[in-house]
Design a protein around this nucleic acid. Sequence first.
DNA 1: CCTTTTTTGTTCCTTTTTTCACAACACTGA
DNA 2: TCAGTGTTGTGAAAAAAGGAACAAAAAAGG
Lengths: 214, 214
Amino acid sequence: MSSQHVPQATAERLPLYYRTLQHLVTIGKTRISSSEFGNLVQIDSTTIRKDFSYFGALGRKGYGYDTQHLMEFLRKTLYQDELSKVVLIGVGHLGTALLNHNFQKNNNTKIVRAYDVDPKKIGTEISGTEICAMDELAGADNHDITAAILTVPAAHAQEAADLALASGIRGFLNFSPTTLSLPSNVYVRHVDMTVELQALIYFLNHAMEQRNSQ
Amino acid sequence: MSSQHVPQATAERLPLYYRTLQHLVTIGKTRISSSEFGNLVQIDSTTIRKDFSYFGALGRKGYGYDTQHLMEFLRKTLYQDELSKVVLIGVGHLGTALLNHNFQKNNNTKIVRAYDVDPKKIGTEISGTEICAMDELAGADNHDITAAILTVPAAHAQEAADLALASGIRGFLNFSPTTLSLPSNVYVRHVDMTVELQALIYFLNHAMEQRNSQ
DNA sequence: CCTTTTTTGTTCCTTTTTTCACAACACTGA
DNA sequence: TCAGTGTTGTGAAAAAAGGAACAAAAAAGG
């Protein structure tokens, strides 16, 4: 019964599972039950078991899940064991924060280049990542790049996305507070902090069932 | 038929609608149909009409929606027309990015104080927000503060959240890649950029139905 | 004023996601 | 070896969300 079709909702939770398992392995926990894990990530244990079951039998009845094994399985599932190269466009505070964050350490992902328009930044490095001129993006061949992280001001987001698209990039993580218009064969994921804060405040004001998200 | 119960999925979309309406009003567009709006935010027009209908009849048949009116309605719904005060904990690059972003301009939200441990930062200001010592958070009375934005390193997130909780804060926007353990009457919203990037890469690798998120 | 067009609000149906409930199996300890 | 306990994996039910279709109402255009 292995991965015939993994529901969207399940796929969205895998990275959270992966991160939590990394933590568990780090602190030396070798086994965990679905209910204990569920308490950690605040998701119902049935949902967790069903999520895992889409990938086959990952646990052992009467025992639970082996954290190391599960973590490695998820790593392979999430990354297919290849290093994913991404570029970052827009080296402001947010871009710098992401560069410093250094995804590579725990995850099979590396920001290989950053682009900016500021001449003072071009040519310098942040956490080992070189900052190139935005102009270079236009002519670049980025077909080996998995995704672009967009951290430019909203007014320039579409423009930057178009450049990246032309260079061969087919995945976008957009941090600008604007909806991008891109072809449908391109995958765009949108993170908007303003929206998150507004949603938080809405749920606080309309304090109905206090249900934590994610 | 006014707001009996607004579904979670609808509530999550309201901030996006609001932001888009702000944009429309700014560029001088006074009316819009659900289908045109749907194209903009990339959500089915039926879903949009249904979302609005939970709040009563906001549109006019044969005409569409008045952008100004709808925007103001959403503002009231999202903020209840009160200025929401929030504090920010952890003035690194990400924290600085959020301070510069200045929510207040378009949204009824203001970061009234920031906290950090770095003596070099304490006492300074960023975009008009004063940076206080983390120690001050311990004794503070923050019952008038709606939420805390957590932008501290993962290792200190729980600690910072506990301090904020003790000072009276009941809402959290957590940017640290760690799950917080807090009482159930507290609302926590979690934004994890690593998770977002991983999810993006997963969907690209398993390029099934290319469905854009949000 | 009357016809045609537009577009909402809503009902009903489909799909997706979550939750319940439990059989099956594997550990544990005597 | 064997009862007893814990925990998974899953089929079936329930709940939530999404989408099609359309009546009703308003606008637009003579």
